[in-house]
Design a binder for these strands. Sequence first.
DNA 1: CTGAAAGCGCTTACAG
DNA 2: CTGAAAGCGCTTACAG
Lengths: 364, 364
Amino acid sequence: MNPSRDPERPKAGVVPHRKVGIRDVAKEAGVGISTVSHVLNGTAPISQDVRLRVLEAARGLGYLAKRQQKGSIACLKTIYLVVPAASLPHHDMNLVSWTLLRALSRECEERGIRIAIHAEAVSLEAEPILAGASAAAADGIVLVYDDRSSLLEALAKGRIPVVLLNGEDPEMRVDTVVPANRSAGRLATEYLLAQGHRRILHLTWQGRSTIMRRLDGFRDAYADRGLSIDLGEVLHAAGYEPDHARQALRQFVQERGGIDGVTAIFCSADNLAIGALSELQQMGVAVPGDIAVVGFDGVAPGDFTTPSLTSVRVPLEALAVSAIQTLERRLLSLRSDHPVERIELGCVLVERESGAAPQPVTRR
Amino acid sequence: MNPSRDPERPKAGVVPHRKVGIRDVAKEAGVGISTVSHVLNGTAPISQDVRLRVLEAARGLGYLAKRQQKGSIACLKTIYLVVPAASLPHHDMNLVSWTLLRALSRECEERGIRIAIHAEAVSLEAEPILAGASAAAADGIVLVYDDRSSLLEALAKGRIPVVLLNGEDPEMRVDTVVPANRSAGRLATEYLLAQGHRRILHLTWQGRSTIMRRLDGFRDAYADRGLSIDLGEVLHAAGYEPDHARQALRQFVQERGGIDGVTAIFCSADNLAIGALSELQQMGVAVPGDIAVVGFDGVAPGDFTTPSLTSVRVPLEALAVSAIQTLERRLLSLRSDHPVERIELGCVLVERESGAAPQPVTRR
DNA sequence: CTGAAAGCGCTTACAG
DNA sequence: CTGAAAGCGCTTACAG
């Protein structure tokens, strides 16, 4: 109708909110300025029709989001970021960390939050962390990966709110934000089971609590279909790098005198999947023809490998945003007795070549 | 200093925000009105000292919370509340439901959100729910307890956002808010283990997925101390009422020809604990002298039983608030691809008489 | 780094 | 149920 509008495009992340106001929304929705106000505040009975039109416009223009954010910024000026240096070097795990940290810093930049980074001595200890956070006048601490119980215990006793990102606190002393690892592990496994695979190898490593949840999900999927978990097989690599996967797979084949009936491999990290793919290729095994491969992380671009890698995508951007929001909420309700929160964000399976069914069983 | 002030009392829930404004905060903090604005928006470099004073005042007066809420109200006008009628009658489970639903309706009232209740035919079916929500012009659906996979599947396909409260969706199709059952089950068990108990009976029933997580936590606690889970014992009652607990316990004693070395009972609901207490009393067993008893829910007043019941308190009010907030966030980010959220809220152990150590082992 | 004053955006009686 | 106009609260140059 109105030719001069380039209509609603929130575009996930790139919100162009130069200065959207209530008047823009009114114009967009074709109503009066006060009507918008009434809709937004529920201060007058508005017809369903107009109400939805206004909300639609407000959401589309990013006004709703803008208004939402306004309240929060207040209390969070500086965050103290604590990351084990050990998680930074190395291959793709690195890519995951890197993407997560970039998302975190982007979100902070957008909101004008300063980030102070904890310079780690040898390993992360509570005292220097708390001292550092204090010195940096930080309003909150974002702790990534390291979820040793003693560390969490000590940090929780400090006066600065802590959010643990990508780690687990089974004793719930600090707020936590993690991908729904267990649920996603199950999802990936079920994807393979639905294709008819029964003997699936779960290739993983034991370094991190969160990774073990993917194994839990692997087992869940079998249990859910009433299948014996003994049909599946769990193989622990010595680490999370492609070479570790190769070694583990090679040894497995050696010990069993072959692939031992396995028709699919579900890896707990893309890195491992990359290693598995190359080892399989070397063994002359066709993927996905002979063996299907599914990864986990979904950070690397899809055509990074041949065949392209079917993988579970972890919502790293959303995790970063959620961590900040959780910190904000905690700051907002300080001294009130709001319970500790654990937030899990769902992952989605990105279907590409490596995990495809040998023949189209499900559809056709 | 200022004699006319009745200082900050956010008082969890009963926020008396008649009309707190930026000027109230300024007066409270003893600064200019624009300084407050600058602190809240980060629009000028403010000294750490003044900044903290202002934030303190803003939080204390409930201004921060008020401002936070403002943004949200917009999109959520009506919620469609779906509760299995079967969960409403009966004893204490009832008390739990009742408290949860009251918290939900109080929160909605405070925010001017209308609640439309789904009138259930025989059992909850997706189609009539979606139709009813549409007819009620609801902006979102709050589904309580019922987490059958087929129901969630169908509801997730509707166009109205759904939040599942006190239920589980392992496949993560809808946003979920639950108490941290597993973590709390572990907490309660660890509390008993720390007192020296080794042979603990977990008295539960199999009706609900969320309740089974408390059993998981029971096992976690043993595993965490490197103790064999065989030391513990799991007893499934036929239902969640006190009588079911009594029956189950009686049968257990009969079969084993005694209490079989059990020195503590961890019940997955206060209701069961109440039944256990009365059965133990009838058997002439002293609580906590001979056997310690710990419940789960923490809704009933502490002196409801003799001895008073040590129990895990589930944060029902916070759960209700969180469910509404989750719905709001979903509405705010509609059409953007924000991942599905699962939120767990931590529970705390309320120590009273029934779970006390026979002799002070831990302290002294 | 802080505040007095001008100005703008949103809210709020009120009319239709 | 909707909008024009008055008014209030918060923000924003700007001075010190």
